[in-house]
Amino acid sequence: MLIYAVCGAGIGTSVLLKSNAERALSMLGIEAEVRAVSIDEARGADKMAQVILATPEILDQLAGIPAEVIAINNIFDLGELGEKLKATLS
């Protein structure tokens, strides 16, 4: 299972999203690789992730990418992350 945590530059928000997604996944007992990438990297990736995590502002720019996109409003809310990941992955 490959998950992309995406933000504009692939440097700040995506890194935070990745580290908190990893925490949420480990609480759920789900094994997955989470990579922090920029929008451009997500669009041009050789190996497409099954799931993309992103903040609502950039959803438009992710349109057309063949992956399930999950919008995360509060990236510090492990409850929100866990629930949305669980709903998508199960």
Partner: peptide, 23 residues
């Protein structure tokens, strides 16, 4: 410049912004 181009994308949680640009 990044705020102008991408909008307030670094407002990442209720009440909280994490302003930054690329390295």
């Amino acid at each position: 410049e990044s705020l102008k181009t991408l909008g307030p994308y670094f407002v990442i949680a209720p009440g909280l912004a994490l302003a930054h640009a690329k390295p």
